[in-house]
């Protein structure tokens, strides 16, 4: 009992994860042995140039792709051993996804987009709708629940996507370049919203990003280079001045 109490709760843990892609006769090693540990409730940014293996790592953590070697643990469960059904359950209940391109279902209103994961999870339509309204209000879209995605601005669409990602109270939110398609100001608002939800709900947020504004709110930054972890920095160890770099982002 004492042991379990003392043991750190890892939301995500990877053990020597490698991933190879075969393209014709050539084998490309996208990940060359990644070891990361993410504590429950942390806000993590994964930084790295394109082609660094960042996206591949992201897919592994999200249970969207399986590693060639190594293990990925989500809430202490090795997900490489899960079957299709269990993976779907994991995606539905444990992980919330936020995409660069928002990926709302175009034929559905903001409300229906948010209720969909709850319907999958077996919630009644009535309960799901109530919770969706609550979540949309939380992200500041209480007035626009009946709008379709094309009637919303980019920032508003991303807010709907964030509300949707929280639908089934996931343990982990995976955000793939969540500010990549947004302007500077809107991007900042989205980052602040994510940070607030991270604090209020205690959810673990892992975000792949190029956006230096993101560093400011992250607990730790994991730098990926050539399929390996280059360095892991805590925010207080960061020696770059975010403010002076911001101009480049716009």
């Amino acid at each position: 009992m004492i042991e379990t109490a003392q043991r750190q709760e890892y939301a995500v843990k990877t053990l020597n994860v490698t991933k190879e892609f075969t393209m014709g006769k050539e084998t490309l090693q996208a990940l060359k042995g990644i070891n990361i540990e993410v504590l429950a409730g942390e806000y993590i940014s994964i930084m790295g140039p394109s082609g660094s293996g960042k996206s591949t790592l992201f897919n592994m953590i999200g249970g969207l792709d399986k590693p060639t070697n190594g293990k990925v643990y989500i809430d202490e469960v090795d997900i490489s051993g899960l079957d299709a059904y269990e993976l779907a359950w994991l995606r539905c209940r444990k992980i919330g996804y936020i995409f660069q391109t928002f990926n709302l279902i175009p034929v559905m209103t903001a409300l229906e987009n948010c209720t969909l994961p709850m319907i999958f999870a077996g919630m009644s339509t009535q309960d799901a709708a109530e919770k969706a309204v609550e979540l949309l209000t939380l992200v500041g879209l209480g007035e626009r629940i009946r709008h379709k995605p094309f009637e919303l601005s980019g920032g508003q669409q991303q807010r709907v996507a964030i509300a949707r990602s929280f639908a089934n109270d996931p343990a982990i939110i995976l955000a793939d370049e969540p500010t990549g398609n947004l302007d500077l100001k809107t991007g900042k608002e989205i980052i602040e919203l994510l940070r607030r939800l991270n604090k209020d709900k205690g959810v673990t947020i892992i975000s792949a990003t190029h956006d230096l504004k993101m560093l400011d709110v992250s607990d730790r930054i994991i730098w990926i280079r050539d399929g390996l972890v280059d360095k892991i920095e805590r925010r207080d160890e960061l020696d770059i001045a975010i403010g002076s770099l911001e101009g480049e982002e716009a």
């Binding site: 999200g62 299709a84 779907a88 996804y97 990926n103 175009p106 969909l116 999958f120 949707r164 089934n168």
Partner: peptide, 16 residues
């Protein structure tokens, strides 16, 4: 394509 992939990320099984 993307809509289907998104649904699967939200927990949809193949037969959904």
């Amino acid at each position: 394509y993307r809509e289907i992939g998104t649904m699967k990320c939200l927990g949809a099984l193949d037969w959904f």
